[in-house]
Design a binder for these strands. Structure first.
Lengths: 128, 128
DNA sequence: ATATTGTGTATAACCAATATGCACAATCCT
DNA sequence: AGGATTGTGCATATTGGTTATACACAATAT
């Protein structure tokens, strides 16, 4: 079985905590199919070492990923990308997108943007 | 001169810091015209007391609001909503909207959403 | 058996946000 | 002029989330 490359990185400039950055990168790669089901994640100690961070941050990211069904972990064996069907992947991807969008939507309504205005704003700024 | 009502509130359940909540509420009310130029803000001590928070949080919000041109402060007199022209209000409103949207846009592209998909997602979830 | 991998716990350091209190400066009001 | 009001500035402290380090334990692999 051949598996995809796992690419993970940490931005110290990000406002998001490390565990959150890892969660999103992995979840995104899974629901977009960049990471196929069953792909083994690097051992947390090795990853902590190569990223120059603590095991704690990775552990927390992995915990939440498992809680949300994105990965499965087996003691002594390792952690693996969950095997989501195409349908499931699609709905989870939509879920994540909505999760990103919802908080902004609330603010944008507060700013009095109509649906039409909002769509226009996005059309003009999607790229970049 | 008659001025608008200023409504400010703090949500302890919010993930955003107090000073940020205040900043946004005030900036939003100003660019949407709910707060007309020259309207006096409550004295920071009185406001701190009535909201049950510290002066520090208010001070910081006010500082950033002044830095960004939303209010003007005069020692001994008080703080007042800045007097923005209609045009200026419009462009600042657009600025704030983009500021809310931009971080989400980056994530949404990471999720592989096309412009069309994104617009559809918004159309379906603008209300609620 | 020994190594590898995840789990759990304890301890500590760091930092942003927040709170409290007091002194100072500028302005307002009488 | 004098007291009240308002913003400013500083010092100190607390709290909570995030992260780091280290060690012992459990399950699996080779």
């Amino acid at each position: 079985m051949i598996h995809m490359e796992i690419s993970l990185s940490i931005l110290n400039t990000s406002d998001k905590p490390i565990y959150r950055q890892l969660y999103e990168q992995l979840a995104f790669q899974i629901v977009t199919g960049k990471l196929s089901g069953g792909t083994p994640l690097p051992p947390i100690r090795a990853l902590a070492n190569s990223l120059g961070i603590s095991v704690i941050s990775i552990k927390r990211a992995w915990e939440e990923l498992e809680r949300d069904g994105f990965i499965v972990t087996m003691v002594g064996r390792g952690c693996f990308a969950a095997d989501l069907g195409d349908e499931e992947r699609g709905s989870r991807r939509r879920e994540l997108a909505l999760g990103e969008l919802r908080p902004s939507l609330a603010s944008l309504r507060q700013l009095g943007l109509t649906k039409a205005e909002l769509i226009e704003l996005i059309s003009e700024n999607y790229d970049e």
